[in-house]
């Protein structure tokens, strides 16, 4: 069993939890993920690692309630435990695997949005700890749904916030802010974009035009997460790649985002039904003829 030591509401249905998981905490690296299964009947839910404390043996996860399972997860309280918590899975971020002297020559810009801000945080923190200055853009629809702003400000060389409605700092989305930074004379040798697939797609379209190598972190549907089921397959260039063992990071200019977005929607009907069942009780079992 894996005990919840801390629980905090961030914003916009996004929750943060510290989980006691010494084996995972000892080995996890920025860029990797874990799989949580709440109880016997639960799904295996892949979640990115937001932070870790090797001494305390804890791993910080951040998740947004999007379906029945994540809604149920948000009802767990400090002191309760998840039945299963496995990781670290996937490959560490390719940047942290680079020789440090070469990494220091790079000018890196992180662009994140929504719950994708969480996996960016440990990477930026790692950069700071290793003396690498990086810039970060957090994009959000509006000021109230920003997460991890204070934490990120402590570790980023420059933190830029872009809000669609202009309620805070720059008005516009992540792409607009990249263009704005270039207009101010900034330039970068690498972009790391993590967030909703639609956001990563547009950042990649822009950076391809601008010729900036771009890494994205993919979060497709997974079952086992250890390289067995193939549910997480993606078209990357000419190849089929498996996000759980080959990723989750890929060259964003090669990922087929349109296909990935369609695949991500595969269980939407089932998820919607399960969510209704969770919210309103056992009344939505299908068969009404309206739900398909």
């Amino acid at each position: 069993m894996f005990k919840i030591l801390k629980k905090e509401y961030l914003a916009n249905n996004i929750w943060l939890m510290d989980i006691e998981a010494p084996r995972v905490a000892k080995h996890c690296q920025p860029g990797q993920f874990v799989i949580v299964k709440m109880d016997e009947e639960g799904e295996r839910i892949p979640l990115t690692v937001c932070d870790y404390d090797r001494e305390k043996g804890t791993v910080t996860i951040v998740f947004q309630t999007v379906g029945a399972s994540t809604m149920e997860m948000a009802e767990y309280e400090v002191g309760e435990s998840f039945e299963d918590f496995v990781g670290p899975l996937g490959c560490p971020s390719e940047l942290i695997e680079m020789p440090l002297d070469e990494l220091k020559k790079e000018k890196i810009l992180f662009v994140c949005g929504g719950v994708g801000t969480a996996p960016v945080y440990p990477q930026v923190k790692w950069m700071k700890e290793h003396g690498v200055d990086v810039d970060v853009i957090i994009g959000a629809r509006t000021k109230d749904i920003l997460i991890l702003e204070d934490e990120m400000r402590k570790v980023a060389a420059n933190l830029y916030i872009a809000t669609d409605d202009g309620s805070y700092e720059f008005k516009g989305n992540g792409c607009d802010k990249i263009k704005d930074l270039y207009a101010q004379g900034k330039s970068y040798t690498k972009v790391v974009a993590i967030g909703p697939m639609i956001m990563m797609k547009f950042v990649c379209l822009l950076t391809k035009e601008m010729n900036i190598p771009t890494i994205v972190s993919m979060n497709p549907i997974m079952v086992d997460g250890t390289g067995m089921c193939g549910a997480c397959r993606l078209q990357v260039g000419d190849e089929i790649k498996f996000a759980c063992v080959d990723g989750p990071e890929f060259d964003g200019h090669l990922v087929d985002f349109d296909q990935a977005m369609k695949r991500q929607a595969m269980y939407k009907t089932e998820e919607g039904r399960a969510k209704l069942k969770f919210e309103e009780g056992d009344t939505h079992h299908g068969g009404c003829g309206q739900c398909h």
Partner: peptide, 28 residues
Amino acid sequence: NANGVFSANEYLTRSNLMKAFDDKYDTP
């Protein structure tokens, strides 16, 4: 890579390990 193409491993894992055939279980 179309929706509705599965590996046998995925299909069987969902049904056997995750017990998707049983309504009590959450995996679809």
